[in-house]
Simulated scan of single mutants.
Amino acid sequence: MKAPSIAVFNAEQTALLLDFPGLVDAIATACADYASGAICAPERQVVPFPQGGVMLSMPATAHDIGIHKLVNVVPGNRELNLPTIHGVVSAFDGKTGRELCVLDGPTVTARRTAAVTMLGLKTFLRGKPEHVALIGVGTQAVGHVQALAAIYPGLRVTAIGTSLAKAQAFVEAHRHLPLELNAATVTPHDIDAVVTLTTSAVPVYTQAAKAGLLVIGVGAFKPELAEIGEATLQESSIYVDDVAGARHEAGDLIQANVDWSAVQPLSHALAHGAPLNMPIVFKTVGCAAWDLAAARCALQKIK
């Protein structure tokens, strides 16, 4: 008996299904749904994987669809010149449980992560940014510079690397994007927002908190990692994309011993606004609800 075919999309095809303007809107909707309980997204399960890797299982369900993101992270792949992350996002019909499609997992993660940052810029700045700094020029920075080009064409963006050569190489690789790209090794002073995109164990951004300057932390996703310094955090209003996940994974906040009773979810700012006259830090750790939002976007185009 021939098995029924299921649409499987590779990385390039998945990216085409996830345009950033639509993805940002879908995540804003999912954020409200998640806060109200309309999306069920338990904390991710981490299982040991061979070769020192980990398998991450992240399901989420809503009235219309269910998704399951299953990805493997194998650090040793760097020595083999292979990506460290492989995996898929499977989408299922909410009425019948029938398989709908399979998306490329790393692509979904990269694009929905960048879309959450774009939602943060939209929510926590008074207007459109004129100058944004990206600290880090690795894989996460690629998704973010693509998102900035799609949402804020013409934006001035400074890419900050551990060396000027690395930053310049990143800029040259993305000259085709409609952005004013510059390379640097230090954070400029005339920026509206700074986004940290590293896996550093020590803070890469330690400047004093400043009203009107939005700090977005993306890269530190383990308790032992920290990109944003304690001084910045202690003087800022702190928002996170997912409070439950942040309590266990936001190393910046954990190491700074922040007052968790004062930490607000992004959904609160979307519903009630944010104190834009205060310094703001927006920390993201990811959530399966955002993967569900991405699947919704993809399915709209597939149909």
Rank of each mutant, 00 (worst) to 15 (best):
S200A: 15
A211P: 06
A269F: 01
V54Q: 15
T117R: 04
K210G: 00
K122R: 15
T14Y: 02
V46Y: 06
V145Y: 07
L134I: 08
V74T: 11
P129Y: 04
E235N: 13
A169I: 00
E235D: 14
G97F: 09
L214T: 11
L16Q: 12
I216F: 00
L164E: 02
P275Q: 02
P50E: 07
V215A: 03
I151C: 13
G161P: 05
V108S: 04
Y152F: 14
E130A: 15
E130L: 14
V74P: 02
A294C: 05
N257R: 15
P153T: 08
A41V: 00
V215H: 04
A7P: 02
T196I: 04
G161L: 08
G273K: 13
V89P: 01
R247W: 10
G37A: 03
A15S: 09
N182E: 14
A169E: 05
K2H: 13
L276M: 11
A173S: 12
A110M: 03
R156V: 09
A294P: 02
A3M: 14
Q168G: 02
A173F: 00
V186D: 13
S90I: 10
F20H: 03
K95N: 15
A184C: 09
D192F: 11
S36V: 01
G219T: 04
L100H: 08
K283T: 09
G217M: 01
R78W: 07
A91M: 13
V46G: 00
L181S: 08
A133R: 06
G97C: 11
L177N: 00
L276C: 13
P75N: 00
V74L: 07
S267I: 10
E172I: 00
P106C: 00
V102H: 05
A115K: 02
L148F: 15
L164N: 04
A220R: 04
V116F: 01
Q255W: 07
G53A: 13
